[in-house]
Design a protein around this nucleic acid. Sequence first.
RNA 1: GCGAAAGUGGCGGAAUUGGCAGACGCACCAGACUUAGGAUCUGGCGGGGUAACCCAUGGGGGUUCGAGUCCCCCCUUUCGCACCA
Length: 855
Amino acid sequence: MGRRGAVSAAESPASPHRLHLKLMADEKEFRYDPAEIETKWQQRWAADPALYAAEPAASGKPKYYVLEMLPYPSGQLHMGHVRNYSIGDALARHMWMRGYNVLHPMGWDAFGLPAENAALKNNTPPRDWTLANIAAMKRQMQRLGLGYDWATEVTTCLPDYYRWNQWFFLRMYEKGLAYRKKSKVNWCPECATVLANEQVIDGRCWRHEDTIVEQRDLVQWFFRITEYADELLEGLDKLDGWPEKVRTMQRNWIGRSEGTEVDFSLEGSGEKIRVFTTRVDTIFGATSVQLAPEHALVANFTASDAVLRAQVDEMIAEQKKARETGDIGAIEKHGVATGKFAINPYNGEKVPIWVANYILADYGTGAIMSVPAHDERDFEFATKYGIEIRRVIAPAAGGEEPELPFVSEEGVLVNSGEYDGLSCEAAQKKLQEIAASGVFGEAKVTFRLKDWGVSRQRYWGTPIPMIHCEKDGMVPVPDDQLPVLLPEQIEITQQGGSPLGRVPEFVNVECPKCGGAAKRETDTMDTFVDSSWYFYRYIDAKNSTAPFGRELAGYWFPIDQYIGGVEHAILHLIYSRFWTRVMRDLGLTKNNEPAERLFTQGMVIKDGAKMSKSKGNVVSPDDMVARYGADATRMYALFAAPPDRDLDWQEDGVAGVSRFLGRVWRLVAKHAEAARAGRGQSIEAPQGVTLKLLRKMHQTTAKITQDFEGRWHFNTCVAAIMMLVNELQGADAELSAGEVPPAAMHELLRTLVLLLAPFAPFVAAELWEELGEEGAVLRAAWPVSDPELAKEDEIEVPVQANGKLVTVVRVESGADQETLKKAAMADSKVQSRIEGKTIIKVIVVPGKLVNLVVR
RNA sequence: GCGAAAGUGGCGGAAUUGGCAGACGCACCAGACUUAGGAUCUGGCGGGGUAACCCAUGGGGGUUCGAGUCCCCCCUUUCGCACCA
């Protein structure tokens, strides 16, 4: 196809001989021109929305839901997106060709701060800015030839989506899963809003890595994710289609720890100091009680003690600073004795009460019993301050007394009164029971996971559907008044407080209960609310009476394959699992987990570093597509590394893939006429070069099919296609001389195009047409490898002497041990190598190798 | 500190179960063709050696007829967690 005079195929149905005639007329004119082919097919695909559309369940085909994480509409795709979507699209296309009913949707995580920042900077309304970005990125995706069903597109910032956020919020409020409380929260001064714990990374904002997150006391809305903590944890064990790394990260994040709460009493008062411990078996070794500086009791102590007050304040400041800079683990342990004492309820022993800087107010009860002999930190602390260190656990195995601290639980109790001799495990159980029956404690499970703070003091998010009435208190917005629309014309400023609070028309409402004057909640929801359930909306994106239909969810869920970056291992993926369970309990879905399988792809890096504007090493997808075409860009993204590893972007590599596609192009064009002549004919008793080529073709098919089914090493799939093409090209003389019958030629080129289709959809579509095939290549059946034809009839077997390679012998592929051995011994190189030596042993692995052990 | 993954030519990477280390591609070199091109085609390309051969998968040890692959120790890099009681 030449640059000049090409008629858009959308206008005229393809002339089957077009390419070939062009080739004859002017060989040089026949050049692989990705821009032209890709434009043509992009138009055709746009005109045929059914091509990538999912079918109803009644299609009878097995369903396959493949999902890539939806992007934030920043306005520009980056290479990480291109890689993510190239993987998903290859899989989707493969599954289509395998005859599945594939759902492959795309959408936009469209609420968020950047839109407000852009509004400030350019004086553009966030909505306009966002929608323009979406349009731009959608164009990029279409230019890349990604096969999405745009009829199901979801844009989270539009009312028909976010009204369901509000609807879910109300359902959660009714179930007590959404609640309000005052608490210490993470505050990013740069975002001027609260952040969830999950959004604080090393004490810094997840969006501003140089901005230290502050702690503030605010009244906030929370989702009770902790209600599902155990279930979220247990569910991980069954998620064997998820990477172990992600599961481990979630386990750590949930941080379940089983232990006992025990009340020590404050000497000289009836007050109780409740401590949490995982090692109640060591309680006879408790030689002090340690309180967090912010513990409620500490305030009582300091009220009458100015010196103590000052010391505690200093510790609070220190903890705050450490928390903010993220080196909480690094501060030196220190503390101060309060002069007060606590009574151990098990033995009535009086131990001193300290305040220590390493005790956290928000974990456990904010108070611990300190057992220096059997805990690293307590040991360090006690050594520093000369607090008694008392051994109460001896190794179960007996023998010498181990050095302290002895933290193992493989032990028995000593110096523990009537409990001496019990194993740690037994003692924990026993002491727990005693605490419960004596009403001075109980078994307790503590989690690191905290409830999800969802209030944001920002404009560009889902309004929280709540109304504050002086008379009726907190009143939910009735369902029939949803959505609570986000006002459109609003001035964005960087003043404190929620921007919505400055919009009187929004704020002032009638109370739905009493009809009196009331005020709307002005905080908006965390954008992670949007992304927690978006993939359910795809299946029923136009539904105006429910977030989605139950039946449809039953059909499509769980997602068969979810693909995205590992950076969402905690945030998005834990919230999604939570949300799925909430929906299940609302009776909307049956599945416990959103996705059966999760794949986390590696990062795209350049020159060994993550691409970033500040490093100036950003590669623009548009640029790549303009220079080498979408097919080459996508195929390189799959070829340069296995999908789970980091990928080093090398532009020369893209050029290489582009050259390869040019070779395929010319190869098929050159022999297309012969191939077309062989359509519908059957191949009979192939031999010689025909057999050789067909064999390679079947081997390649088998390899790629297998990879799609499990390993996903698409880099080697592309390499295998290259080898097949190299082999075909190497036989060019025979092909041109007509030595390969048309039927075989047809089969070879047709299969080559089919194998290429998931990776380079544009070239595949064009060549499919060129071969005179009907219908979309996407709906053609994936080729099946014939093991008989894939089998070599002769193989090369290495012959070793003492494990070192001597030579390679050719034998029939089914050759038995004896034949192999004979062939090896007959070889002249082997002969000269073993001359004058004794053969001690001969190892023959049929089909693999011969190894002679000689001396 | 704890946990996980990784370390192979100049570069990206291959070797799926212990069986020819370096597939495929990039870069580079040589040649062909040529209205000279960032096009296409052919060949070469881990290191040493004229050669027979020898050496080589972060380092050291081990198991084995045979180790990039399994085991032990160590080094480096990346990621995650890190006063969680």
